[in-house]
Design a protein around this nucleic acid. Sequence first.
DNA 1: CATAAACCCTATAGATTTAGTAGATTAATA
DNA 2: TATTAATCTACTAAATCTATAGGGTTTATG
Lengths: 137, 137
Amino acid sequence: MLSKKTKYGIKALTFLGRQVDNTPVAIATISKSENISLKFLESILLTLRKNGILGSKKGKGGGYYLLKSPSEIPMTAIMRILEGPISMVPCVSLNFYEKCADCPDESACAVHNLMMQVRDNTLDIFRNTSLADLCNC
Amino acid sequence: MLSKKTKYGIKALTFLGRQVDNTPVAIATISKSENISLKFLESILLTLRKNGILGSKKGKGGGYYLLKSPSEIPMTAIMRILEGPISMVPCVSLNFYEKCADCPDESACAVHNLMMQVRDNTLDIFRNTSLADLCNC
DNA sequence: CATAAACCCTATAGATTTAGTAGATTAATA
DNA sequence: TATTAATCTACTAAATCTATAGGGTTTATG
């Protein structure tokens, strides 16, 4: 299940991507428009900034803005920052790999092989979808 | 992320599906072979029984056994029982649908439309994979 | 009747999620 | 320069979920 953090993060990014110019938008503006708890959104936007997706400007007239154009931001990046691994099990993760404690042989593990398929398919979608695609719908 | 419950459940089902005859297998046998905590596995097998996947026999020589042949058990059924919804958001779920509180218009929601794609792809895999496929690998 | 097994109920430690509260810091502007 | 509007930081907290553990009950078998 997708966390609210990720869901809200994507919604906020989409909101920013739909802006005509790329001038800073205040958290409160996004919060009201997308029905997201202000302080929760604040922490989400902060992590997006720390991970190079967003820039921010402090003080009056400040806010958050996209650092790249929406078409240059793949969903893989957004998902990995907000949700973490795209895989359903760590043992098939590309960026967050971890061996299973209970499983002696990965290549013989039924779960492993099934989840590899799921990962490949999901990854394919996220790789071929950019923030721009989300903004146009 | 896949819960351990689901992972262990699938492993146990695979173990049962690989049995030559379909005679009852004790929880302890599966627990040892697959490195799964006995009491946790107990509760997992119980829910699989209550959901029509497994049968059980009490007393000496008792245990759990599959109610159908592995090829007749699709992964969709197993996943829904153990993990719940296959969708990443309730608003695109076929079997566990729930409207989002924050979202006024589903068809205009970027998250909704993206997760619909992911669901379709994942569902396709689970529909075309049966327990039998997992047993042969 | 003894034994071995599923069954059933309860509790719980720990982690994660989803926030809320309080204040510090920074920058534009009147 | 004083004010104001904004981000930034840190702490707290409730609620829920996860992954067990323990103990007692029931049922079948030899």
